[in-house]
């Protein structure tokens, strides 16, 4: 198999959402001792980009999008430890702390954003659901994050987004991180009102908004 053939196979495993192939090809690349940076840049990234294009064109909907993102993540879970072994740092778009806000256990939207950010080259630290405000701030500091993404589904819990930003201001950390908010009741006006840097109304626009912010 030539390199180009390998890139094509990898690309299609992502486009088709075939996790078995996506993982097997990552392992094959490791075994063949191919340049893993090239594997990512020439195989997996073009695959997920094509998926994004298909979403934009209305050919792919959420199930395809998320499946492909999960395939991407599964492949990266094979490749990244191998790269670390030989001290190669995978190119990243930035480090993101993401979670659903305290008091709120609705995390499907947050999970979509998390998967897609991860698939699109962000280093994502997902804190899960019902995350305390202090935990967002502490993790962001400890892990030197670039972006904090806070999701809320309820009109009651979305108030926590405002509180988080107030806390960041009080601790003089507001300028250190970018803050992005999302969730069903959240809109652009709310994001502006509370002083969030970014807002996205769905998972794909979240990827774009994150890229624009960093």
């Amino acid at each position: 198999m030539t390199k180009n053939e390998l890139w094509e196979k990898i690309k299609h495993s992502i486009i088709d959402g075939n996790k078995v192939d996506a993982v097997a090809l990552a392992q094959e690349a490791v075994d063949l001792k191919v340049d893993l940076t090239e594997v990512i840049e020439s195989g997996y990234v073009p695959g997920i980009q094509k998926v994004g294009d298909m979403w934009e064109n209305g050919e792919y909907f959420l199930p395809e999008l998320i499946t492909s993102a999960e395939c991407m993540k599964a492949a990266m879970d094979i490749l990244q430890p191998e790269m670390e072994k030989i001290h190669i740092k995978a190119h990243t778009q930035g480090r993101v702390i993401i979670g659903t806000i305290t008091g709120d256990i609705h995390d499907i939207g947050k999970n979509l954003v998390s998967s897609l950010l991860s698939a699109n080259g962000f280093d994502v630290i997902d804190l899960g659901a019902d995350v305390k405000l202090e935990d967002f701030i502490q993790t962001a500091q400890d892990r030197e994050a670039d972006l904090i993404c806070v999701s809320a589904l309820l009109t009651t819990t979305m108030l926590g987004q405002r509180r988080l930003i107030e806390l960041l201001r009080e601790q003089e950390l507001y300028d250190r991180f970018k803050i992005m908010v999302g969730g069903a009741p959240v809109n652009r006006q709310w994001a502006q009102d509370i002083g969030a840097h970014g807002y996205a109304e769905n998972a794909m626009t979240a990827v774009k908004a994150a890229k624009d912010l960093l």
Binding site: P63, I66, E70
Partner: peptide, 20 residues
Amino acid sequence: DTQFLSNPHTRQWYRQEHIF
């Protein structure tokens, strides 16, 4: 953590079950 979005079953049926 179970969700159905990336379950192959979703992809198999959603376009037959739902119109857009």
